Simulated assay, not measured.
Amino acid sequence: MLASRRMLLLVLAVPAITLFGFFVWHGTLSPDPTRNHYPGEDELAAGDVEPGNHVSLSGTVTATDLVTIQVTSAHVTHEYAVRDAPDVDEVQQLRLFATYTDDGTLEAHELVVRHAWEATYMYAVSIVAALWILARIFTQWRFDPRSVLFVPASSTTGERPAADTPTANDPTRDEPQAPTSGGGRGG
């Protein structure tokens, strides 16, 4: 156990602050194709992408004759035609890596087609799993402020029993035997 609460708080705070710093730092990075970080929806909508450059973006299919996707960025919606796309249906989601061409279309190199319900299903399953885990934590664990630890809910002191101490659920624990009367059935 750590020597003091200050040391415990320091041990908890340093990784939390570091993680927060990494999130902020990652959010400040600009597109850099040499590191496989390509311009996306925002740069394409702002006109920062030159024809011939690669882009990575996603959108909803709005037309299927010449596959057209609707892309929303910074509350602005644009539509782009996608060449070399497979057969898709309207309302499907496309995530693609493409080349921005001179005529304003996207020449697809790699793409993933998803149905609209797949994202909803993914989030619904994640929420159910998170709620299930939280329910298990709240029903089987409690916070012990004296030791600043989470302990099993059945524990009253926060101390773990010694390895050689039998517990209530231990099948090897010696239990008093009920007295038996002389011998077999009914007798």
Rank of each mutant, 00 (worst) to 15 (best):
Q140M: 10
P166H: 15
E118H: 14
D174V: 13
V148M: 07
V82W: 00
A168Q: 12
N169L: 11
G187T: 09
H54V: 09
R114S: 13
N53M: 10
N53V: 01
E41I: 00
G52H: 04
V67K: 00
P145L: 07
Q177H: 09
L111Q: 07
T157S: 15
Q177K: 14
H109Y: 10
A3V: 06
L2H: 02
Q92F: 04
T60N: 00
A116Q: 13
L66M: 10
F20N: 05
A116L: 12
W117H: 09
G182R: 15
A85Q: 01
T157E: 12
Y80S: 01
E41W: 00
W141C: 06
Y121H: 06
S73L: 04
L29A: 13
E41G: 14
A98P: 02
G183E: 14
D48M: 13
T60G: 00
F143P: 03
S155K: 04
R173D: 05
G158R: 03
V82I: 05
N53A: 13
I137A: 09
P161T: 03
A116R: 15
V91F: 09
E110D: 14
P166G: 10
V61R: 00
V125D: 00
T72D: 06
T172K: 07
T62Q: 05
T28R: 15
D103S: 12
D164K: 10
S30K: 11
L134P: 02
Q93W: 04
T34P: 02
T101E: 14
D42V: 14
G104T: 06
M1W: 02
